[in-house]
């Protein structure tokens, strides 16, 4: 749908082999992927298939050992240095010596925003993830789900055009998850950000994405890419429509095919 816009992420023949003590582990092999501006791409696949690794390669936290990748037309390193993306890790990774508001403000301090601008963004993003009133609390005084929401707020406050999210809602209950899914879609639509989103949940992937990348393990590779035909405006009950269920079924088939590789 938006594929003719300039590529934000473009990978070709991308591979990554970890050298471990028990020999090489091929985490990614032959990944070809182009993500255009404004896309919402979900990565789904069994545990250990390289979803986190792929996100980390895009973020320049891991160097590929084969193929090429560019982010915003630059190398991942240049993109990281120009603060091109925000990253939500699989765990909250909040600093225990900082209050929630100062955790959310951490990236803003680093990029050197004015105090007023910092306060404004902290307030806005904490509202967005429903954490108003917890500004002065420390992370260890919050539940795991609240911590994860604070870490999402931190990435949103950073306000980069590319958002890399690694199972951000994995630790949350269904209702909060639904709410945050809606919020995220609304934010995406309003800001025209590009989002790469790792998840284990098929309904979540289908509900959010414009494209779903199905991956399979050993070696980690892309086994299927499914274009969503859903409209951009998506109320929560779109999940009961036949169209939605048809896409979900395709994703499920893709996942099954990947799993059968194991047997």
């Amino acid at each position: 749908m938006t594929r003719n816009s300039p590529a934000v992420v473009s990978a070709s023949k991308l591979g990554l082999t970890f050298q471990t003590n028990d020999g090489p582990v091929q985490a990614l092999s032959n990944v070809d992927l182009t993500i255009g501006k404004g896309e919402f791409v979900s990565f789904i696949g069994p545990s250990g298939c390289g979803k986190t690794t792929l996100l980390r390669v895009i973020a320049d936290l891991e160097k590929p050992t084969a193929g090429t990748i560019s982010v915003n037309g630059m190398t991942p390193e240049q993109a990281r240095e120009s603060r091109a993306y925000g990253y939500v890790f699989q765990a909250a990774a909040l600093f225990p010596w900082r209050t929630i508001e100062r955790n959310v403000g951490l990236p803003l301090e680093i990029i050197g925003l004015s105090k007023a601008e910092q306060a404004e963004r902290i307030k806005r993003t904490l509202e967005l993830v429903n954490l108003s009133g917890f500004e002065k609390k420390y992370p260890w005084q919050l539940s795991g789900g609240m911590q994860q929401r604070a870490s999402i707020a931190r990435a949103l406050a950073f306000d980069a055009d590319l958002l890399l999210m690694d199972e951000p809602f994995g630790a949350l209950d269904e209702i909060v998850r639904d709410h945050l899914n809606e919020q995220l879609l609304e934010l995406w639509e309003r800001t025209n950000k590009t989002i790469c989103f790792v998840t284990h949940s098929i309904p979540e992937a289908v509900y959010l994405s414009t494209r779903i990348v199905v991956m399979s393990p050993r070696p980690g590779r892309v086994s299927d890419i499914i274009e969503s035909t859903l409209p951009k405006k998506r109320p929560l009950d779109i999940r009961e429509t036949p169209e939605f269920l048809a896409i979900a079924a395709r994703v499920r088939d893709g996942l099954r095919a990947g799993h059968s590789y194991d047997d």
């Binding site: 980390r56 973020a59 320049d60 936290l61 990281r80 240095e81 120009s82 603060r83 993306y85 925000g86 990253y87 890790f89 765990a91 990774a93 600093f95 951490l106 990236p107 680093i110 990029i111 950073f158």
Partner: peptide, 12 residues
């Protein structure tokens, strides 16, 4: 932790 240091890296 590794994750915390990676986080700082993502902020350049």
């Amino acid at each position: 932790g590794h994750m915390e240091r990676d986080l700082m890296r993502t902020y350049a």
